[in-house]
Computed example of a mutant assay.
Amino acid sequence: MAQTETFVLHAALDGGRSVYRDIEIDPTRSLHRLAEAIVQAFGFDFDHAFGFYTGLTLSKIKVVHPQYELFADIGEADAGVLGVEKTRIATAFPEVGHTLLFLFDYGDDWLFRITLKATGTKQPKTRYPRVIAAKGKAPEQYPEPHHDEDDDESRFGPSCIPAT
């Protein structure tokens, strides 16, 4: 791979092809940097653990290898799971068309299908990673809980209701 090559990765929010971002990035960067770029492209805070998985459904991600997890970098992953800090994007995405499932935030289970869409050439005076295409509005990472304006207990709790 030439030092002037870039990868264009298509990151689609799972469950809807109408929300996606195409990210151009240096393929010699780590999967950790790719994860950060994906999360930022969707306007999320990069504040949770994550992994890249070969199994393309949530039920199969823990049985198909290879798997790449942040947990492996801190010594808390299952046997055979690889880390994201030292694994290069080019290693995880060996050819155009290759797809991995990116799971961000194991509590909220944000799922993205990441596909190597194309390769490109680095342009002078251009910063990578960069979003080169976007479609659809990203959902809120932490949606506000619904509150009934007339329900003082739900907004303030029973100890905050003024005595009458």
Rank of each mutant, 00 (worst) to 15 (best):
A2D: 15
Q3V: 09
T6A: 09
T6H: 07
V8S: 02
V8G: 01
L9Y: 01
H10R: 12
A11Y: 01
A12D: 02
L13T: 02
L13H: 02
G15F: 11
G16S: 14
Y20G: 01
D22P: 02
D22S: 14
D22W: 05
I23Q: 02
E24L: 12
E24F: 09
P27W: 08
P27Q: 10
R29Q: 15
S30H: 03
S30K: 05
S30R: 04
H32V: 03
R33Q: 12
L34N: 04
L34H: 04
L34G: 01
A35G: 14
A35F: 03
A37N: 00
A41H: 00
F42L: 04
D47W: 02
F50V: 01
F50D: 00
G51F: 02
L56M: 14
T57L: 05
L58W: 05
L58D: 09
S59V: 07
V64A: 06
P66G: 06
Y68W: 13
L70P: 00
L70W: 03
D73Y: 05
I74W: 14
I74S: 06
A79L: 11
G80D: 07
V81F: 02
G83Y: 11
G83D: 07
G83S: 07
E85V: 13
T87S: 15
R88G: 03
T91M: 11
A92Y: 04
A92D: 03
P94I: 12
E95R: 15
T99Q: 15
F102Y: 11
L103K: 07
F104C: 08
D105F: 14
D105E: 11
G107C: 09
D108N: 15
L111I: 09
L111P: 00
F112E: 09
F112N: 08
R113S: 13
I114T: 04
L116P: 00
A118H: 05
T119V: 15
G120E: 10
K122Y: 08
K122Q: 15
P124D: 13
K125Q: 12
K125P: 01
T126E: 10
Y128Q: 03
R130I: 15
R130Q: 15
V131F: 11
G136S: 11
K137W: 01
K137H: 05
A138T: 08
P139C: 11
E140C: 04
Q141E: 15
Y142K: 07
E144K: 07
H146L: 10
D148M: 06
E153L: 12
S154E: 15
S154R: 05
R155C: 12
P158K: 14
S159F: 12
S159W: 10
C160N: 13
I161G: 06
A163W: 12
T164R: 12
